[in-house]
Every structure is written in structure tokens, then in C-alpha cells.
Design a protein around this nucleic acid. Sequence first.
DNA 1: TTGCCATACCTCTCGGTTCGAGGTATGATG
DNA 2: CATCATACCTCGAACCGAGAGGTATGGCAA
Lengths: 118, 118
Amino acid sequence: MTARGTNPNFLNGVPELLILCLLADETMYGYEIVQAIRARTGSVVAVGEGVVYPVLHALEADGALRTKRKSVDGRSRIYYSLTAAGKRRLARLTNDWTSLAAAIRGVLKGGKDAQSFS
Amino acid sequence: MTARGTNPNFLNGVPELLILCLLADETMYGYEIVQAIRARTGSVVAVGEGVVYPVLHALEADGALRTKRKSVDGRSRIYYSLTAAGKRRLARLTNDWTSLAAAIRGVLKGGKDAQSFS
DNA sequence: TTGCCATACCTCTCGGTTCGAGGTATGATG
DNA sequence: CATCATACCTCGAACCGAGAGGTATGGCAA
């Protein structure tokens, strides 16, 4: 959301990245995403609904997500899935994250002379 | 800074982590740290002085850093080095970052059944 | 049947962090 | 003598995540 001038979105945007990633595998609804993040990260990341829903809405407004209402057991759910733009966004964020993680790993392990980036 | 209740500091605190990490190797002064971060991350991370100095001051106030003024070529520099508390802090943050990176990598690569955390 | 918990959606405010611009001062370089 | 690199600093705006809170339904137990 809102590209920062210099650094590629690094420190934040983790919830957005995870959400896009989950939706790339299968369509899901908000409440389900909250549980899935907790489950798939072994509770290392535990974002609340107050984080997930606003991200979902912003991504939809940006054309990255498509929605479809469904009623299951009398419960109303809003299923989200990736659009083409969403897939591109996911690819970009994944790339950003990967290079960030590599850079930080380099500093972490780098006892002085550390140089191995593309 | 300021432990979050649930998630271990994840998305932000990257500047703090990098600064502590650099100072673990050698004592440095603020301006030098700004350049070092840019250099060692291949410009993937490029934080300005407006980020570095406040973090430095906060860490010092917290007892994680120790300072020593020095004059080199008529220029006044403030060298920072880690205290015992600073080393503990670095260890904790490194741990947090590592498990976060592992968790995210798991979701990223995990086509459904991904389970490999300790 | 009544209360409580899980499901499922949502919004709002608070607080912390980062960003960028700006401000001061010195030494070297053209 | 002006401009740049060095070297310190602060401030305001913007942003994002945390957590509390709010609504409504279904299922289960007391």
C-alpha cells in the first residue's frame, strides 16, 4: 500500500503479503484468513481481524482482489480471490521480501566482509 | 522498542536490528552507520539519518548502548558500542527475526500442507 | 429458555515507527 | 569563496498494526 519512495515496503506489509499468498492457493473469507495465518505460522504471526479486514478492503479497492458472497449454513461469508493485478502484486511483494530477507541475513551473519547480492 | 503483546516485534524494528548487529562487530558513529547499512545491504535497505539518530538515542537511554566522544581530524564523533544489555537485546531480536523469516518462508513456499517449525 | 461461545462481518482510536525535510557547523576541494 | 562531504541533530507528517469494541447468527449446555 502506498509505495515508499526509497525502501521497498520492507518492514511493514507483512500482513498484506501473507494474505495475498494464502489467497493465491485458494479462495478464503476474512475470518478464515485470520485463523489460517495463526495456524500456518505456528502462532509466530498472529494478526487480528482489525488488521485483516482493512487490508482486504484496501486490496479490493485497488483491484487486487475479487469478492463473491456465499451463504453457508445460514452464515454469510465473503470469499476473496486474486485478480491478475493481485497476482502481479504478490509477485512483486514476494520479490521485495526475499531480497530484504537476504540482505538482513547478510548483515546478521556477515562478520565484516559480506558481499553476495545480485 | 516496546515489546508488542503478541507478535514478536516483527515488521518494524529492522533498523534497530541492523544497528545493533553492526555495533556488535565494531564500534561506529552515527553517520558511519547510515552508510554502512546502505553498503552492506546493497542499497536494499537505505535508512536516513532521521531514522538512525533517534534509534541510537533511544537505545542509549535504554542502556543498550554506551557512548564515547572522540575527535578525529578536528571532527567530533560519537562512537557507540554495545553493553551487556545491548547484546542480550540483539540476541533476542535476532531470534525473533529468524523465526519470523522462517514462518513467512513457510507460508510463501507452502502449497497447502506446510508444517516445519520447532 | 437462557446464557455463552464460536462464527462472521465491521470500524475506530491509540501509539509507535519511519520518512523526509530541514537546521547547524567544520574541513576539504575546486 | 563557494560548494560539497562529513557529522551531529530535531521536527512534522504519514502510515500501519494493535486492540477494543460493535452487530448478528447458530449451536450447545445448564
